[in-house]
Each structure stands twice: as structure tokens, then as C-alpha cells.
């Protein structure tokens, strides 16, 4: 009982302290908001146990406020989550932040922050960001969406000046599939439900982004 009361008081203090958005986060957001549009070429490497796919290439383009667009000569699968390098979805609606202290990764210290949306329209329930406060950039995130599960991003940058990442690792949950299909005409009409298994698998996509053409807001 004592622990619960302390817990509630602690959370209350945390939330009270969280009313003002974090300053470091605001600087990161400002830097991301300065991007008007960008174009780049992207190399995708899918690492999902039940999918075998060669490396794929696509051109991506982003206009502020728009969904990211992509083009490719051959078939590509692009993750729905993780391509929003501007993290615009996180800042679209009102939110509060909670300081989670610092995390050390490979000898470097990063600030951990929780973002909790206060608007029901937000499509995520909570997000954790790792901030590189020296260069005002996001180096990692774990975002719990309302409909599409949780996904993690790990971002690496080519130089301290770059606002956008050079390498991104997207980790997400994906349903395992089992298809009793041999492509015979008679088996085309199959029951989709019977082909699904409950098991959820972790998948990863490695993105290498090159040839950035960035335009900033004037």
C-alpha cells in the first residue's frame, strides 16, 4: 500500500514536471521542422525470418506535411513505419514529455524522453526517444502505435551536420504466416483466416540512405 502511494506521488511529480515540453526535444523538433523537403535514394535489406528477398532500391521524396513518396523500377516492400525521418507524426498533436534520464550506448550518453500525446487523434499511445543533445538529433526511438504495434528505430548519421540519417534500422512485430499454397488453380480459393498463425515474429529492415537533396524552410 505504502509503495502504491509513493508510486502515485512519484508519477504525479513526474507528470507535473512534464507539463512543459522538454527543451532539448524542442531544439530537435525545431531542427527537423526546418526541413521543407528532401529526396534520396534508399537501399532496403529485409530481415524477416519467413521472407527471403534480395536488396532493393527505391527513390524516396518527402514534402513537409505530406506522406513520404517512393518510386522503384522493381517490386519493393517499404515499412509503413520508420520512413518518417522528420518524426512529424509525433509532433502533429499536443503532447507532454517525461524526462527518463540518460542512456549510454557505445560509450555515448543520450537523453531519454517519453512523449505522451494529450490529443486522442494522435496515432500513437507513447513514444520513447533517445536524443543526441550535442547535435540536436534523434538517434533512437520506440513508438507504440494504437493500431500498428510497437516499432523501434535506430538511426546513424553520416556527419554531425546532417539532420537526416544515413542508416536506419527499423524493428517491428509482424504476424507469422503459414500458407498451404502450391499455386495450383484448385487451391486459389483459400481461407485466409486458416492460413494465419497467432504467433508474432520480430522483423527488421535495414535502410541505407544516400544522395540526399535537402531543402530547408526559408
Amino acid at each position: 500500500m505504502k509503495n502504491i502511494i509513493f508510486g502515485i506521488i512519484f508519477l504525479g511529480i513526474q507528470l507535473l514536471g512534464a507539463q512543459e515540453p522538454d527543451e532539448d526535444l524542442m531544439r530537435v523538433r525545431e531542427r527537423l521542422d526546418s526541413l521543407s523537403s528532401f529526396k534520396a535514394t534508399i537501399e532496403l535489406d529485409v530481415d524477416i525470418s519467413f521472407i527471403k528477398m534480395p536488396k532493393k532500391y527505391a527513390d524516396i521524396s518527402y514534402e513537409r506535411g505530406e506522406r513520404i513518396q517512393f518510386e522503384s523500377d522493381d517490386f519493393v516492400m517499404l515499412p509503413k513505419r520508420g520512413l518518417d525521418f522528420s518524426f512529424s507524426n509525433l509532433f502533429k498533436y499536443s503532447f507532454i514529455t517525461v524526462d527518463r534520464g540518460f542512456e549510454v550506448i557505445e560509450g555515448k550518453k543520450y537523453k531519454a524522453i517519453n512523449i505522451i500525446p494529450t490529443d486522442k487523434k494522435a496515432d500513437f499511445s507513447i513514444a520513447m526517444l533517445l536524443l543526441d543533445t550535442e547535435n540536436d538529433r534523434i538517434v533512437g526511438s520506440e513508438i507504440s502505435t494504437k493500431k500498428e504495434g510497437t516499432y523501434q528505430l535506430s538511426l546513424q548519421y553520416a556527419s554531425n551536420k546532417m539532420p537526416l540519417p544515413e542508416k536506419v534500422e527499423v524493428a517491428f512485430e509482424v504476424e507469422r504466416m503459414k500458407i498451404p499454397l502450391n499455386y495450383m488453380g484448385k487451391d486459389i480459393d483459400v481461407d485466409k483466416k486458416s492460413m494465419r498463425e497467432e504467433e508474432v515474429k520480430k522483423g527488421k529492415i535495414y535502410l541505407n540512405i544516400e544522395n540526399y537533396q535537402i531543402r530547408y524552410v526559408e
Binding site: 517490386f75 519493393v76 517499404l78 515499412p79 483459400v190
Partner: peptide, 21 residues
């Protein structure tokens, strides 16, 4: 029916991916 086959194959990936091509 070809698109049905592909739909079946890619059904549970549609939640996580966009497809181009």
C-alpha cells in the same frame, strides 16, 4: 484470380509495409 493469390500471400504484411511494383 492472380491478384487474389498475391493478396493472400501478402495479406498479413500489408499492415507493416507499403508495396510498390
Amino acid at each position: 484470380q492472380g491478384s487474389t493469390i498475391i493478396d493472400v500471400l501478402l495479406d498479413n504484411l500489408k499492415e507493416s509495409f507499403y508495396f510498390e511494383g
